[in-house]
Design a protein around this nucleic acid. Structure first.
Length: 309
DNA sequence: ATCCAGGTTCGGG
DNA sequence: CCCGAACATGGA
């Protein structure tokens, strides 16, 4: 192995492969299980212990295959040999998606005494909150998923991605990026309606695309704010309510205390885990959230994970 | 057939 | 401020 950085390397290279040491409390298999939860996912695939995804770096699209080898995560660029800058960007991307810089020790310590989460932490030990680093994609995924079942939501996303996303053809397969805000901003409501988007979903998407493409709201600007200000900024977008704001804070901004209380999946997961015959009340959810503080986002994610068949 | 889906907006009391 | 209705359609 050849060191890619002289002092304190974050990763090593071997050929064009990047070797990234994994932190303790990391379970790649659990992460893959979450990533593979829908057969209709159009932005990545999981097979044979590999995660395959097309990633946009400054200027180029790189198809990567991520797998685990010993105590390393191996990032293999498939369609190009990245330069040093691109290697750094790829590593940053993986650190972000898999939340590898976070110490989960305090999370597990905190949940030890929680009857519900204690059990899930044992079952899913090492599962990381899988992120959506792109703000526009995270916002769109919220809007698409509102008030419809996930299977249908994936289908709606697929139509948008396959028609408007950048495509890379590689060894007989097509790989896609999520469409840019600029492209979606140029779409009409009618165009989206043809793909069974409701009129409101369609107009929310185009509206958000406009704001994002004009740079009115950016991930960096949100990251500089307090969580509360970021929440308010997100909710100023038409189509982004309380639930969506918390979802984006969880998956994109990495706000550890984000907590989508109204989420029906969260409610069902708690119902199942506690053997209730009805969904828990909002007041009960808020009380649980207080007990989970400051790990509400991770608690929510583990509960979502418990819903995978 | 009926109810529920990773909710949000809008109008009314 | 809180409440119900409308939104649109798929899956169980």
């Amino acid at each position: 192995m050849v060191s890619a950085a002289k002092a304190n390397p974050r990763y090593y290279t071997e050929g064009s492969d990047l070797y990234l040491p994994v932190p303790c409390a990391f379970d790649f298999t659990q992460c893959l299980k979450f990533l593979n939860r829908s057969h209709h996912e159009s932005l990545h695939s999981v097979a044979d212990g590999h995660w395959v995804k097309l990633v946009r770096l400054a200027g180029t699209s790189v198809l990567i295959q991520v797998s685990e080898s010993g105590s390393f995560l191996v990032i293999r660029p498939l369609n190009t040999v990245p330069n040093r800058l691109q290697q750094d960007a790829l590593v940053d991307y993986i650190l972000e998606v898999f939340d590898l810089n976070r110490d989960l020790g305090p999370f597990y310590d905190h949940m030890k005494t929680d009857p519900l989460m204690g059990k899930l932490c044992g079952q899913y030990y090492g599962l990381r909150l899988l992120g959506i680093p792109d703000l526009f994609e995270a916002l769109c995924w919220c809007i698409i998923g509102q008030q419809i079942n996930l299977t249908f939501a994936y289908k709606l996303k697929q139509r948008l991605v396959f028609s408007k996303g950048e495509k890379l053809h590689f060894r007989g397969e097509d790989y896609f990026l999520f469409p840019s805000a600029r492209v979606v901003a140029g779409m009409s409501v009618e165009e989206l309606s043809k793909w069974q988007y409701s009129a409101s979903k369609a107009s929310y998407l185009v509206g958000v695309a406009r704001e994002i493409s004009q740079g009115i709201i950016t991930r960096d600007s949100l990251l500089k704010m307090s969580a509360e200000d970021a929440r308010k900024s997100l909710m100023r977008l038409r189509g982004i309510g309380e639930w969506s704001a918390h979802y984006v804070m969880m998956k994109c901004l990495r706000v550890n205390t984000a907590y989508p209380v109204g989420d029906v999946g969260l409610q069902n997961a708690i119902k199942i885990q506690k053997g209730l015959h009805k969904k828990p009340l909002t007041s009960e959810l808020l009380k649980m959230g207080e007990n989970w503080h400051p790990w509400q986002a991770y608690a929510t994610f583990y509960l979502w994970h418990s819903l995978i068949k």
